[in-house]
Simulated assay, not measured.
Amino acid sequence: MIRMPMTRSVALALSLALFAVSAPARAETYRMDVIIFVDLWASGSEAGTPPGAPQLKGAIDLDDVAKLRAAGIEILPEDQFALMDQYNHLRYSKQFKPLMRLAWTQKDPPQERGPALHIRIGGSADGATPPLVDGSIAMLLSRYLHLDADLAYQQDGQSWALDERRKMRRDEVHHLDSARLGILAQVSKAGGGADDTTP
């Protein structure tokens, strides 16, 4: 059998192919900016339900830096918040009232419900006064990026849920809402450029 000499270009191509197969997947980091707001003009015709305990399995408190870091999550300072135009529009609106603005980055979001952020707005630390909003939000990544929100808004002994999983197109502002509570959210590639093709 005659052996043909392997050219340098063929050897290089084979080496690169083997490296591509054996190299671990590159970690991806995404950023989420979220505004949680209430509709002050919401119709009273849609009655709420008696307040109940939110589902908080896997939810991490926003001030638990160690657990957040272990989950690949970093809460960004308020001066880095990206949706200030939208926040100010809600702030000066007569109909809507922003309750929280939050931005974070997350490395390799899970495909299914994994680490989530515990959202608690208002209420007393000792639990004597219930929070106005309680629940969790999470970033997920399967084929597409998703925002998974499980929040309850409580007022006057009634509770209204915002329980939705929304597919997110990068760099677009998305609106999730319920009878009383709403979310504006935008996901982007942390440090990514315009040539990135990830959905």
Rank of each mutant, 00 (worst) to 15 (best):
Y153T: 05
Q186W: 02
D177H: 15
K189Q: 09
A59M: 08
W104C: 00
H175Q: 05
I60F: 09
A161C: 04
A59D: 07
S136V: 03
D148H: 15
G127Y: 06
I60T: 04
D150I: 03
F37G: 01
G193W: 09
R101I: 08
A17W: 05
T129V: 14
L181D: 02
R170S: 06
Q158P: 01
A125Q: 07
I119E: 01
L176G: 02
A149H: 01
P77D: 09
D196M: 00
M168E: 00
L141Y: 07
A71N: 06
A71H: 11
D163T: 15
A128R: 04
L147C: 06
D39Y: 09
A194L: 14
M139T: 02
G135R: 11
A53P: 08
E164V: 14
D163W: 09
Q80A: 14
M32T: 15
D64G: 00
K94H: 11
A27E: 14
S43Q: 01
H89S: 11
Q186I: 03
K189W: 08
H118G: 07
Y92Q: 10
G123L: 03
E46A: 15
E78A: 14
P50F: 10
D79L: 11
V173R: 09
W41L: 10
R3Q: 13
R26S: 15
G157N: 02
M139R: 03
G193L: 08
G182I: 06
R113N: 09
E78I: 12
R165G: 00
A190W: 07
A138S: 15
E28W: 04
Y153Q: 06
G48A: 06
I2D: 13
T29S: 08
L62D: 11
R166Q: 15
I35G: 07
L83W: 02
A25P: 06
A70L: 15
Q86H: 11
P199E: 11
L162K: 03
P115S: 10
A11Q: 14
K97V: 00
Q111R: 13
L40Y: 04
A13R: 13
A42C: 07
M6E: 08
L147P: 02
Q154L: 02
R165Q: 13
T129Y: 05
